[in-house]
């Protein structure tokens, strides 16, 4: 790292590097229920086991809780975002997850949370789930939107027919390098709180944080990815490509999926600011980011630029 590229704020070094993200397909769903508890149950279940497309089929998370005044039917709700690598994968995940986690959940209804351009691709929401109604389902078109009404034991499950599929960005990330576990976790948690306050993004991993950062490939031919040895403190003296110095005892990563390039950038910025605000005094040493040399995706987020310090 050249001296010219050195950036240190509040004792925290910001690496002159970039996070690398890739295109995804996404949609937003709004789940409402008789009260906030049941809307939350459905949303938590729907976004469960959705940390990485590698094995979950999608990455999903709760975007935010909605007040009754904000939802189509005037009930408490939750907005969730779901990201997949293709429209087809997304369609499959929506059908499975809404079918198993929302259709099943007492008093819920589900709507699209995107207006989408008129020519947007749309994917089925209630369109196929309606067949659960075994012929008793009915539909209603209201102001150009079709809703399906499926009789269920607590009344009727209302689901909007389709939801737009939009281009989105997945895999934005930050690496927080700290002296010890306590410091790394504390910084990561602060960053997550700040980032989750923003719209249009989710942090798909448990608690928003991931400790098993990965690199592409493995010595085992069957594995597409493996542990990011360059950032494993256990391997600092061993791994040839280590990025760590002896003072780093723990690294945490935050992965961000967002509806647009700008949404991911904004989330990374507030995340970094939250970490930097804690400063070296809280045990944070560096902020870095994961990239694959620009090979993986078209979206590159330079950390210095995000902080307005490019070329400083």
């Amino acid at each position: 790292m050249s001296a010219a590229a050195m950036l240190e704020i509040n004792g925290v070094v910001i690496d002159d590097t970039f996070a690398e993200a890739f295109p995804m397909k996404a949609t937003r769903l709004v789940i409402t229920a008789h009260n906030a508890t049941w809307a939350n149950h459905a949303a938590v279940a729907l976004t469960g086991f959705a940390t990485s497309v590698i094995a979950c089929g999608c990455e999903a998370g709760i975007e935010r809780v909605l007040e009754p005044g904000e939802t189509p039917d005037g009930r408490p709700g939750v907005a969730v975002l779901i990201f997949s690598m293709s429209g087809k994968d997304l369609a499959k995940q929506i059908e499975r997850r809404v079918g198993q986690c929302v259709l099943t959940c007492p008093t819920t209804a589900v709507y699209t949370g995107l207006d989408g351009p008129p020519d947007a691709d749309r994917t089925a929401l209630g369109k196929n789930l309606r067949f659960f109604g075994d012929g008793w389902q009915i539909s209603k078109v209201i102001d150009g939107r079709r809703y399906w009404r499926v009789p269920v034991m607590d009344g009727e499950f209302v689901a909007e027919e389709t939801t737009p599929v939009v281009k989105a960005v997945g895999g934005g990330n930050l690496l927080i390098l700290a002296h010890d576990t306590e410091a790394a976790l504390g910084a990561a948690e602060a960053a997550v709180v700040a980032m989750r306050a923003l719209p249009n993004v989710i942090l798909p991993f448990p608690g928003g944080v991931v400790r098993s950062g990965s690199k592409i490939g493995s010595k085992y031919a069957s594995l597409p990815a493996s542990s990011n040895d360059a950032f494993c403190p256990a391997l600092t003296p061993l791994a040839k490509r280590t990025e760590l110095s002896a003072e780093v005892g723990c690294v945490m990563e935050i992965v961000i999926d967002g509806l647009t390039d700008g949404d991911v950038a904004a989330a990374m910025r507030v995340g970094m600011e939250a970490v930097v605000a804690r400063g070296a005094a809280a045990g944070v040493r560096r902020i870095s980011a994961g990239n694959y040399g620009g090979k993986l995706g078209p979206y590159l987020y330079r950390l210095h630029a995000l902080l307005g310090k490019e070329g400083a």
């Binding site: 189509p72 039917d73 009930r75 209804a109 209603k140 209201i142 607590d154 009344g155 009727e156």
Partner: peptide
């Protein structure tokens, strides 16, 4: 006899 509040609200608002 069931609760039709959801579809009713959508219709009534429209």
């Amino acid at each position: 006899g069931h609760d039709v509040q959801v579809i009713w609200t959508l219709l009534a608002r429209s």
